[in-house]
């Protein structure tokens, strides 16, 4: 009889990478459901298209059975949540594929990428189709109705849209200096992309992940804090030009970005100290881009910029090794 010989430890916590990933997917289900509630079946179609776009290249070029670890599905869902409900499905598909190919596979697949693949896909769509990605249909209307050019033919020249386009709270604020009631922001009854609108649902789902230690709460906490502080200071200086901290946090993609995008394990720091630095940096950039930049929204670029410096953040925030208190 022969026995298995393995290295110690011979016990394991039982956690696994696919389990973490599928838990994130699970926690995104209510967010997708909320999107479907606000924007009708179109929302689900956009999610499906984007997930399919993410899975396909992973299936073709990724590691064996890489699609089963759940990470590409997350990328697809997250990307969809940043898109406007009326976006043509082929664009959502293309965005997902771009995010996985150029955001993940070229770096060497799972765990090797520097940038959040979902945000990279979104950045690509924004650069390639600036009109489609900033066309926001109104929430409400007939629930079953399709919004926008859902079934547009790929690469056909975009027709002037015949849907009514609503402004997002951030657009209203930036370009028309109009506020939106906070309660609408929290509950999601405003214009915006799929996952931007239901802040409360996102916070609850994030709380679940944080409890299971699948999400480092320090990142969203420090993002919220830093957005609050910087926008609060500006608001105190000139309340008529700069919106207050609560509006800043609950409008646009801050909540979604802070809870689900910035916390992507692969592209965020491994040290706790690093998580605070990372979150603070994102918050600062979000406020700066929104206030001084030409864009109404800044979350995507803020996170991507901070992704780029994660290796340096990790380096300067190494924990103090046990027994080195006095040592230089």
């Amino acid at each position: 009889m022969s026995y298995v010989v393995t290295a110690s430890p011979h016990l394991h916590s039982g956690d696994s990478t696919p389990r973490i990933m599928w838990n994130v997917v699970l926690s995104l289900v209510p967010v997708v459901a909320a999107a479907a509630w606000f924007f009708g079946p179109t929302a689900l179609l956009v999610v499906l298209a984007s997930v399919a776009g993410a899975l396909l290249p992973e299936r073709i070029w990724g590691r064996r059975s890489a699609t089963r670890d759940g990470s590409a599905a997350i990328t697809g869902i997250l990307l969809a949540l940043t898109l406007p409900p009326g976006i043509p499905l082929w664009m959502a598909f293309l965005g997902g594929a771009f995010g996985i190919i150029f955001g993940k596979l070229v770096f060497g697949g799972l765990g090797q990428n520097v940038f959040n693949p979902a945000l990279l896909g979104r950045a690509f769509l924004q650069a390639a189709f600036p009109v489609a990605i900033t066309t926001w249909p109104v929430a409400g209307g007939p629930w079953w109705g399709l919004r926008g050019d859902t079934f547009a033919i790929p690469f056909a020249s975009p027709q002037p849209l015949d849907t009514v386009t609503a402004a997002t709270p951030l657009g209203l604020m930036k370009f028309e200096h109009k506020g939106t009631p906070l309660w609408d922001l929290m509950l999601g009854t405003t214009g915006g992309s799929l996952g931007e609108t239901a802040a409360l649902v996102i916070l609850l789902c994030g709380g679940y992940l944080a409890l299971r230690n699948y999400l480092n709460w320090r990142i969203p906490a420090s993002i919220f804090l830093s957005v609050a502080i910087f926008s609060g200071v500006l608001h105190l200086l000139d309340a008529s030009r700069y919106p207050g901290p609560l509006f800043m946090i609950f409008s646009g993609g801050v909540v979604l970005g802070a809870v689900f995008m910035a916390t992507d394990m692969v592209t965020s720091p491994v040290t706790h100290g690093g998580c605070y630095v990372f979150g603070a940096g994102i918050g600062l950039l979000v406020v700066a881009i929104r206030v001084w930049g030409g864009l109404a929204e800044g979350v995507m670029y803020a996170i991507l910029l901070m992704n780029a410096v994660v290796p340096s953040i990790n380096r300067i925030t190494q924990p103090r090794v046990f027994g080195t208190r006095e040592a230089a």
């Binding site: 973490i20 990470s71 765990g111 965020s268 720091p269 491994v270 706790h272």
Partner: peptide
């Protein structure tokens, strides 16, 4: 699987290594 940089190992190490 490849390392997903979850940081759980840093939280576990009693010597505070990385």
């Amino acid at each position: 699987y490849p390392c997903i940089r979850c940081g759980h190992c840093l939280d576990a190490c009693p010597v505070f290594l990385n």
